[in-house]
Design a binder for these strands. Structure first.
Lengths: 197, 197
DNA sequence: ATTCTCATATAGACACTGTCAATATAATTG
DNA sequence: CAATTATATTGACAGTGTCTATATGAGAAT
């Protein structure tokens, strides 16, 4: 109990993070301003600087946490699976797409290079881990294909990201976006299965 | 010559557009502010409102012009081609990818739903035309495939957009991004050829 | 205990931003 | 020439991030 309220406000860093995430979900990244977050947290607009050196640092922390969550979700679902590379790749793909549609603002933040620090070491590290999961499965899938595993991994991730991002932009909503009840996202993944089944 | 200088400043709307585009290329969308654009154009900060009702309208106009240029580029290159659907699809894909890497800030603006009016009728119209080019070729490519032409079109566009967007985010730069000299983007397209060759 | 030091919080200032209202001026129309 | 409309200016307002000076809390050193 010695560490319960380490300072004036308490665990302000955590509070700022939580408040910022709530604002991100509700209003998008543009709603995550230092002053609004400080207000929600009940502190002055100058307080956050002690925990996040600027707005970019705060948003980068949010983004990193999302990549962490995505990776954790992937690993959890992979652990419950057998060794069929095709099924494992499909799980990774589904996890990514689900995350994007479930948390649109969080997902968009991940790729907003103007808002977050794209050179952040921890951020890149988590991204590498996710990329690694894909590569691992593709290398197991079947050796001796026309392209190397990196090309398949990049292509699949590109397709997933592109579909989610364009849909979230709200400028890409094909009229007939379902095929016999299933969303086209599912078909996109099915189509890509050609390469790993 | 009666319309040469229709008003005080001259063709301010055009000047604003050009200045804004220059700022977009140089500083990104965040550098395209009403006040900065007005300053570059040599007018007061209140002048632009007569030609673009707000910042969003200005950015939307920029975006629309880019979609127009992209479509025109595609059509020009298609016109020089024979009837081989595979080659025509590849031309469309290359045109899109080239545009993204050549004008990164313009490309990113196209999908920034928080900056432009994604419901703008003209904008959607141009997008539909581009989408239509893809669908047309896929429908000619070969009937009776596993998926409908829309799925192929969406999948290809998703893959192209995803690859370009992730690369432009500067957070997705696989270590080994060339295959025997050719950029991976080329391999991505080659990989997708499976579906139309 | 008292002092020292550092971490943290506050308050104010500055230069930006978009947008609006009031005003002025230019061009067109009647 | 008068009236109207389109355009441009200016000033204001509420925001924004970030910086500086100042104040305060908390733990360590003496």
């Amino acid at each position: 109990m010695t560490q319960l309220k380490p300072f004036h406000h308490g665990d302000l860093k955590r509070v700022l993070f939580d408040v910022a995430l709530a604002r991100l979900d509700e209003h998008g990244a543009s709603g995550v301003t230092i002053r609004a977050v400080a207000k929600d947290a009940g502190v002055s607009h100058g307080a956050p600087v002690n925990h996040y050196k600027d707005r970019r640092a705060l948003l980068t922390a949010l983004a990193k946490a999302q990549f962490d969550a995505l990776l954790a979700g992937i690993d959890t679902r992979l652990a419950e699976l057998d060794d069929d590379p095709g099924a494992r790749i499909e799980i990774i793909a589904s996890a990514m797409m689900d995350f994007g549609f479930r948390y649109p603002h969080r997902y968009r933040l991940l790729w907003s290079a103007d808002l977050i620090d794209h050179a952040d070491a921890e951020l890149l590290s988590v991204m590498d881990s996710i990329y690694d999961r894909l590569c691992t499965e593709f290398s197991k899938a079947s050796p001796g294909r026309e392209f190397d595993k990196d090309t398949y991994a990049v292509a699949l991730w590109s397709m997933l990201h592109g579909y989610v991002d364009m849909r979230l932009s709200r400028m890409f909503e094909p009229l007939n976006d379902s095929i016999s009840g299933a969303p086209r996202g599912k078909a996109i993944i099915d189509l890509f299965k050609v390469f790993f089944e």
